[in-house]
Design a protein around this nucleic acid. Sequence first.
DNA 1: ACGATATAGTTTGATATCGAATTACAAGGA
DNA 2: TCCTTGTAATTCGATATCAAACTATATCGT
Lengths: 147, 147
Amino acid sequence: MPDPVAFRVMNEIGIIDQLGTTMFERAMPDGLTLPQFIVLNHFVRLGGERTPNALADAMQVTRATMTSTLQRLAAKGFISATPDAHDGRSKRIAITALGTEARNRAIQAISHDLSAMHEDIGTAAFEAALPFLVQLRIFLDKRRNLG
Amino acid sequence: MPDPVAFRVMNEIGIIDQLGTTMFERAMPDGLTLPQFIVLNHFVRLGGERTPNALADAMQVTRATMTSTLQRLAAKGFISATPDAHDGRSKRIAITALGTEARNRAIQAISHDLSAMHEDIGTAAFEAALPFLVQLRIFLDKRRNLG
DNA sequence: ACGATATAGTTTGATATCGAATTACAAGGA
DNA sequence: TCCTTGTAATTCGATATCAAACTATATCGT
């Protein structure tokens, strides 16, 4: 019995994620990891402040995971955290100037790999694949929240 | 500036991998993890014996990672390891009867989630997405081996 | 007002993963 | 034979991740 096609797709996705993450982190300066970059990029793209909880939701990770990533970013001086004036349980996270610089260096560092991907696979193929991936991600997210 | 489409695709793939792995491991009996299942499934599908090195190549992980996963599978009695008679550095790994049973229970445990995926997304969409994913995986694998 | 419940964040313990260093053995060359 | 180089596997230290347990604060119901 062959593996169901959904299983084969998930398997390929797992390997791609693994290889892609390794490629990214090898190219990074500042010892920046992919999850750390994604947080910095989120702040540069959308601006403002966020709670750890909102970041965890946006990145689809648990709050525990986000706590860990934010602690490492704070240790590098790439983010700041201030207590929320209206809710004693909460925090406001923002990117620092140092963090913005690190994010921009990261963009530069990965641009060569991204270009190679566009050349080899074709930008059109990425565009074509995106709707399926979004639909699959939304399905899995819904299913997670059901239990 | 929007993120390049290849970056958005890699980002979706990362989230899908994360959500899919969590869904899988929640459904698993025997505390089986996804990497552990993949090794067992490999043996059931293809039979025979393998070296840790060959398994690491097949799963696209480092030998260090495979050492760790094999140690946990051996601790559960799901695989056996015997020294190679002709090469003192090497080992021969095989699945045990207990391992085969665990793999079959795992298949059962995940079948409901897989069915839901096929129903929601459509089997045809998975078939259509597979060639792109294979191409992307092969590109990243080649690129890794170049450095 | 108070007790029950919910929410924000952290901590802990486990697994996976990488790269780098290490150990043990193999193969080849002088 | 011995030395160098190569290969198989493991160990180590770091990061990410989850679930579960925990702390602290907020909100809701009576």
